[in-house]
Design a protein around this nucleic acid. Structure first.
Lengths: 245, 245
DNA sequence: CGTTGGGTTGATCGACCTCAATAAAAGTGG
DNA sequence: CCACTTTTATTGAGGTCGATCAACCCAACG
């Protein structure tokens, strides 16, 4: 509930007089919610934005905290998760560059969020962003598209969680992640996995041991190779076949 | 892909000259997306709306079909689901009176939908609804709230699917459904279950046998009583405790 | 009164979890 | 740069929850 940590981080990482119209040079703007803001109004957006860094393991916010900011990831990756009392955890999503966090603009955060690696974010005051939306109807439309897209992803993930075997889960996960990275980079055979086995298992609803077993099984079947911080796909056709559509 | 069925149904169930400003008397308007439409503009909404009935088991649309309508449930209940090639099914949600179907306004339906019981819907042409949103900024805002709410529910359901035992799933399901019914009726100890065991299992990611076993287990533990088309909660405290928060 | 679609219950099985031991990798401090 | 700890990943052995397969019950209905 104490936001002083976040505030301190702002001071620590974010030099006061950051250049105006940085949004104009933002690498992820074209794929992000901000693309709805017309070039002419970018200065307006800039005034609202604070460019901030979070290092690996650093917490952006906790479930239940008052929600003062919304975030646009510009580089790196974060995990969004819900903890149960007894220690169980469900990761509800990973956010990549261009992804917007806080799409639902809740008064209190409905999940926790921390950085999987050093991550740059563009931080907007929630209040300011809501005001900006009132004057920029396109922005609301773009936000709505983003929420809709997220809902579609969430429903697809429900299928994975509810009706897929361990092997199918892993294969689908690799394929989906590959596609998501393609928004920024080209579609390659290398799928980076900045998260650890525990994270993958908490996302897919299984144990870290089973994740490890399935990955080595896929490696033995010459479908992938496990490389540091990721995998390389050897046989995309077979991977798709094993994903169970 | 063939929409002639739906079109026929329209003709069959929907007398041409339906009374103008029916929206003004709509029982679910206050809780639905339509509440954003100001009283003065209700006639506009009415022109767009076609009141239509679907009987039990009748299909509203199929995944992959071109999406020509969006729907507001006014009475009854429908299930939203995704089928896999091999026959597995994941129900991604149930829609109750006041719920809006097609929130994400996709060009092609991303799930199938059919009626669990005789259901009244208010059908809007997707195109017309999108146009109405352009002239009614509040409507987009309200739709966005609804999508956001749906996303929140979806993420909560991920936790259930990924990290809950069979017993916890059933208990949580009963509690969540009870709350959802409370939007229309008072919060009672009776939870109607218009869906069959197979539907519940396909929603919760388990088998119908396990659903049945867990319900009788809860009954034997004097937590619930199984009644025709539903359950009656005997011990709400214990039910919550067993739901694993 | 047979048929059909749920629903319950039982017996068995297996996919995945749990617990435990290594192994490998990544920090950390001298 | 190398011992040393700490974290993360792999692998194995055994157990269990829930799936599978199957029988049976019951109510609805033509």
């Amino acid at each position: 509930m104490d936001l002083s940590l976040n505030e301190n981080e702002l001071v620590e990482h974010c030099p006061k007089g950051h250049p105006v119209n940085e949004c104009g040079h933002c690498k992820v703007r074209s794929v992000s919610v901000c693309s709805a803001v017309k070039a002419a109004e970018l200065t307006e957006l800039d005034k609202l934005a604070r460019h901030s860094k979070f290092e690996k393991r650093q917490n952006l916010f906790e479930e239940g905290e008052k929600s003062n900011f919304v975030y646009n990831i510009t580089s790196g990756m974060v995990r969004l998760y819900k903890n149960s009392k007894d220690g169980r955890r469900q990761i509800v999503g990973f956010a990549l560059p261009g992804d917007f966090i806080g799409l639902t603009m809740p008064e209190f955060h409905e999940f926790s969020c921390d950085a999987l690696m050093d991550t740059d974010v563009c931080e907007f005051s929630r209040k300011g962003f809501i005001e900006l939306m009132a004057s920029q109807p396109d922005l609301l439309g773009r936000l709505n598209s983003a929420v809709s897209h997220e809902l579609t992803l969430a429903r697809e993930h429900m299928v994975i969680l509810g009706r897929r075997s361990a092997e199918e889960k892993i294969c689908t996960f690799l394929l989906v992640l590959r596609r998501r990275f393609a928004r920024m980079d080209a579609l390659t055979v290398r799928v980076p996995l900045p998260m650890n086995r525990q994270d993958i298992s908490d996302f897919l609803g299984m144990t870290l041991e089973t994740v490890s077993r399935m990955l080595t099984k896929l490696e033995r079947a010459k479908v992938i190779v496990i490389i540091p911080d990721g995998v390389r796909i050897l046989d995309l056709i077979k991977l798709k076949a094993l994903s169970g559509n």
